[in-house]
Simulated assay, not measured.
Amino acid sequence: MIGLELRQLEYFVAVVEERNFTRAAARLHVVQSAVSAGLKTLERQLQAELVHRTSREVSLTEAGRALLPRARDTLAAARAAIDAVDEVRGGIQGEVRVGVMASLPDIDLPAALGRMHADHPRVRVRLSHRPGGSRELADDLAAGRLDLALLSEPGPAGHRLRLTPLVSVGMHLVMAPTHPLAGRGAATLAELADDVFVDFPIGYGIRSIVDRAFTAAGRSRYVSIEVTNAETAMAYVRHGLGVAILPDAYVHPGPTLRITGPGSDDLTWSLSLATAKNRHPGAATDALVALIEETAQQRTRHAGRKGAME
């Protein structure tokens, strides 16, 4: 790695993650020609082509796949070194890449980010969603494309993450007032096997939890409508187009049932703050993690006091 510049590695990682030179340049706030020239210089120094270039996107070569994790590790080590000096000088700077789900019940993320901006104005926070839900967030976090994420069910990448639980709630069945079960207080998953369901796409935490519960109950189900947020799910349910099993934090007033019997023990939804086990988060990420945890604790205490008063 002697003779390589950190900036060249930064260009390489950005091009790979954005899969496009124009988007990489915009992300790094430089002109596209600088990114292209920097990557060509890196390839010349390594005497290997790192990416396949097409008119629409780029993809990794075998040499690029070998370099990518080491490039990320090198950049992370450089950021940690800068963080150490900044802490001595009394300030934190840099960038934190945060991945979040479409909705975050009981977490006032804007408040946490507002405090972060006030306390550490030199830190840039890049906030983004993932169409693949919690599993895609977990994959991107484990691969180094994110610094932290707020997610529910991480899936196969979970063992590579450090998870801090923030919220944990039960799940209930919601249905239209005209549904045959609407007047009851509870139902089993077996009784719901013939119903049509409204649910989230595969990869989303809620979908994973409900699928796992039906498997534990030895039953299958039919998902007719897939949505990416709970409000849309509730709208379809209200019009009688299906039933849904949702976390209490998402459920609006209306008919709800407890789920009992086999599989019901699996129906608990949790929201966690996640970082990768194999990388040091860095001072800026640590500071934001602390603020998000504090915000979550404040909301929990407020909800507890409100419940006690009621």
Results as ranks from 00 to 15, higher is better:
Gly3Lys: 08
Glu5Val: 05
Glu5Pro: 02
Glu10Gly: 11
Glu10Ser: 05
Phe12Trp: 10
Ala24Ile: 09
His29Gln: 11
Ser33Asp: 09
Gly38Asp: 07
Leu39Thr: 06
Thr41Glu: 14
Thr41Phe: 02
Arg44Asn: 12
Ala48Glu: 11
Thr54Cys: 11
Thr54Ala: 05
Ser55Cys: 04
Ser55Gln: 13
Glu57Thr: 05
Thr61Gln: 14
Ala71Ser: 07
Ile82His: 09
Ala84Lys: 12
Val85Glu: 03
Val85Gly: 07
Asp86Pro: 06
Asp86Ala: 07
Gly91Asp: 15
Gln93Ala: 09
Val96Cys: 12
Arg97Lys: 12
Pro105His: 11
Ile107Arg: 06
Asp108Asn: 10
Arg115Leu: 00
Met116Val: 01
Met116Glu: 12
Val123Glu: 06
Ser128Arg: 15
His129Cys: 00
His129Lys: 03
His129Gly: 06
Pro131Ile: 00
Gly133Phe: 09
Gly133Val: 12
Glu136Gly: 08
Asp140Phe: 00
Arg145Cys: 07
Asp147Tyr: 06
Ser152Val: 04
Ser152His: 04
Pro154Val: 02
Gly158Val: 01
Gly158Asp: 00
Gly158Gln: 01
Arg160Ser: 14
Arg160Trp: 03
Leu161Pro: 08
Thr164Pro: 15
Thr164His: 10
Pro165Glu: 03
Pro165Val: 10
Leu166Ala: 02
Val167Glu: 12
Val169Leu: 08
Met171His: 02
Leu173Tyr: 09
Leu173Val: 13
Ala182Gly: 01
Gly183Met: 11
Gly185Phe: 00
Ala186Tyr: 07
Ala186Ile: 03
Ala187Cys: 11
Ala193Glu: 10
Ala193Leu: 08
Val198Ser: 07
Asp199Phe: 00
Ile202Glu: 15
Gly203Arg: 02
Ile206Ala: 07
Arg207Ser: 12
Ser208Asn: 03
Ser208Ala: 14
Asp211Arg: 14
Arg212Pro: 04
Ala217Leu: 02
Gly218Asp: 02
Arg219Thr: 05
Glu226Leu: 10
Val227Cys: 11
Glu231Pro: 10
Thr232Phe: 01
Ala235Met: 09
Arg238Phe: 04
Gly242Phe: 01
Ala249Met: 00
Pro253Phe: 14
Ile259Gln: 02
Thr260Met: 06
Thr260Cys: 08
Asp266Gly: 12
Trp269Ala: 13
Ser270Lys: 02
Thr275Trp: 00
Thr275Arg: 01
Gly282His: 01
Thr285Val: 04
Leu288Gly: 06
Ile292Trp: 03
Ile292Pro: 05
Glu294Gly: 12
Gln298Trp: 07
Arg299Lys: 09
Arg301Glu: 06
Gly304Leu: 06
Gly304Asp: 09
Gly307Thr: 11
